[in-house]
């Protein structure tokens, strides 16, 4: 390898850096996945969450979300962050799903109407459901922070 090869690599690095910044600013739309087994909660979520900057996708079961995640890994469509309901109708709870995605580098938050402490989730990863709009604004703020749209 010669010094010229080294300069070629530096040029590549510069091109990659500029390309990445361009892609992030003008092309990339963060993908947000929402997992909730309750159709009524999902409907309320869709009506109240207003995020034009993101692509939201909804799932009703952990099986659905894991299958979609496997497909997304092959198509470069993995989510930027996920919002998970704690009580899912399956035998799996939201904490397991959150744990899996966090281990694989996807930011996540659990939403729940339960008021008590949840032992295996940090309090910062929980948003408590309330009947008023503040809950949806909280979720919106979390998504904007997690996707880097608002720092």
């Amino acid at each position: 390898m010669t010094v010229n090869d080294f300069y070629d690599a530096l040029l590549c690095a510069l091109a990659v850096y500029v390309g990445f910044k361009f892609w992030k600013k003008f092309v990339h739309r963060p993908r947000v996945w929402v997992l909730d087994d309750s159709e009524s909660d999902m409907m309320l979520f869709k009506m109240n969450i207003k995020l034009d900057e993101c692509d939201l996708r909804y799932f009703t079961s952990p099986q659905g979300i894991i299958n979609a995640y496997i497909k997304s890994l092959a198509t470069f469509g993995a989510p930027s962050c996920i919002v998970i309901d704690y009580y899912l109708s399956d035998k799996i709870k939201g904490d397991e799903v959150l744990d899996f995605f966090k281990k694989n580098g996807v930011k996540g938050v659990v939403v729940t109407g339960y008021d008590g402490a949840i032992s295996n989730i940090a309090e910062r990863d929980i948003i408590r459901k309330t009947p008023n709009q503040s809950y949806f604004r909280q979720v919106e703020a979390w998504i904007l922070n997690a996707t880097g749209l608002r720092s």
Partner: peptide, 22 residues
């Protein structure tokens, strides 16, 4: 990294069940 994540995802799918319901 992607191969590792895929392995994790497949093992999680095995644990969570294989019913594809979206």
């Amino acid at each position: 990294e992607r191969v590792l994540v895929l392995i994790n995802a497949f093992s999680a799918r095995g644990l969570w069940g294989k019913n594809d319901s979206k």
